[in-house]
Amino acid sequence: MSRRWLKANALLTPTGLWLGIFLIAPLALVVQFSFATRDTGVARAVLPWTTQAYLTALDPAFLPIFGRTLVYAVATTVACLLLGFPLAWFIARHGGKYRTVLLAAVLIPFWSSYLARIYAWKALLDGEGLVNTMLGWVGLGRDGGFLLTHGVVILGLTYGFLPFMVLPLYVACERFDFRLVEASYDLGHGRASTFFRVVLPGVMTGVLAGSLLVLVPSAGDFVTPKLLGGVDQSTFGSVIDDQFRGGNNWPLGSAMAVLLLVLVVLVLVLRGRRGEDVL
């Protein structure tokens, strides 16, 4: 074995150990739990081995929850795309010397805890909150505010994951050669067809990367639906959370987590060659 090979592997050691201990080990534990039997004592998951948890998790009764989760995730991704693209384009194209500052501004929300920010949204949107009060002045107020609705969960998710969309889109827009747009106009394309046939293909890698970065975590999120949503807003993530936190059923929670993981891996496999350039 060459020295170079050794050196390259030595570089991998810290990360390898880190991932081995803090990613693979918990994951292995979850897979183990998913095949164990539920215990109503403190052990939560015990022998013998069984696939009961998977049978329960695949029960059609969970399908509506699953569908809802998917709708939330896709809606969040689309909303992030619609909001994030103009922003990324603007920063890349017109940011000038303020680019770094503008990008930093996108990241500022990360300086405070997500939980704290969701509680702030709660205060904004509840019956006596700012939003409802102001809408009340123009007669659009709603009794009890806007909490506990599908819309507000998607709003919260979009708010939380928008930076994940903006950053890869910005990179793609920045790399995009703007002269292509002029060339397209010169060659007789209109605005719309320039966008769809020149700009969009040019930044597609960013769109795919951003969409994956938003879609995957928003499908697994449970904090947002739990805090902003009500009885009809529970998602796959919040059902998993229930199984663990109420101490209800660790094997079932684990099995559902594994299924979600398998699904995410499927998405990654199916992302196509285009996505591979970026992720």
């Binding site: 918990p26 292995a28 739990f33 095949f35 164990a36 052990a43 998951a45 081995w49």
Partner: peptide, 27 residues
């Protein structure tokens, strides 16, 4: 607590056993 190596099946080959053991020993 349930552990994967509690599986007593003779069909588990040494190779798969070793593989799953490293994965689950981590846990």
């Amino acid at each position: 607590i349930a552990r994967l190596w509690d599986v007593d099946s003779p069909r588990v080959t040494r190779r798969t056993m070793l593989g799953s053991m490293t994965f689950f020993a981590l846990a």
